[in-house]
Amino acid sequence: MTYLTLSITLIFVVIPLVLSKTLNLGLERDTIIATIRSIIQLLLVGFILKFVFDSESLLYIFLMVTLMIVAATHNARNKGASIQGITWKLAATFVFVEVLTQGILIGLNITPPTAQYIIPISGMVIGNSMVLSILFLNRFTAEVESHQDETELILSLGGTPKQAIHRQLINSIKASMIPTIESQKTVGLVQLPGMMSGQIIAGADPIQAVQFQLLIMFLLLTTAAVTSVMLGFMSYPTLFNQRMQVIQRS
């Protein structure tokens, strides 16, 4: 695609702008900012990726993945502000998920240890893990808040913090994983996944594109499960103290 052709695609930005203006939606400014940001960010990433791919340096791959983890942690941490040490818990979760998935992929020779594979797959894994974390933290803080009396009941009857929070924890883990599982049930029927579509458009064999997409989807299932469970089991103890009491906040 030439830059001229790409510039013509801006027509897809003009349509929502016109609709926003006509219907007084007030979204013109945000639409323009989003468009400019996406152009700058993606072009920048494109140039950086080209540089990293050409250099074949493991250090650059490591720096790129680290940057992804830092950005994902920064983005998700506000959702769990009430959980003590959430920044480190998120970072540890993303690092673990990344090491686990890349370890299996590279260790079992499923994908080669090159920037071309590690960086895009890491992006999908860490990005998905970040969304899962936000979903989990949103649900978990809401569950804890709305079931305080149940938590207190179980503690008052001689239950442990783990027993007192068990139902809220399981509900939150399940709720955060449901979108991933549900979207996989209809994949191919309702929508073609972005990565697979991109490969097909770029001229790849559709069967090979499907194979890669399946790999990514299975990877995201693990990512979803590990992220929610790990974050959940690291988060709930911070709500209680050594005397098995809910930490009070005014």
Partner: peptide, 19 residues
């Protein structure tokens, strides 16, 4: 121990929460 204490000193909460 917290568990021992809570079994010895039982408490019925105002809202009678149920599971």
């Amino acid at each position: 121990e917290p568990v021992e204490l809570r079994r010895k000193v039982g408490m019925a909460l105002q809202s009678a929460p149920m599971i």
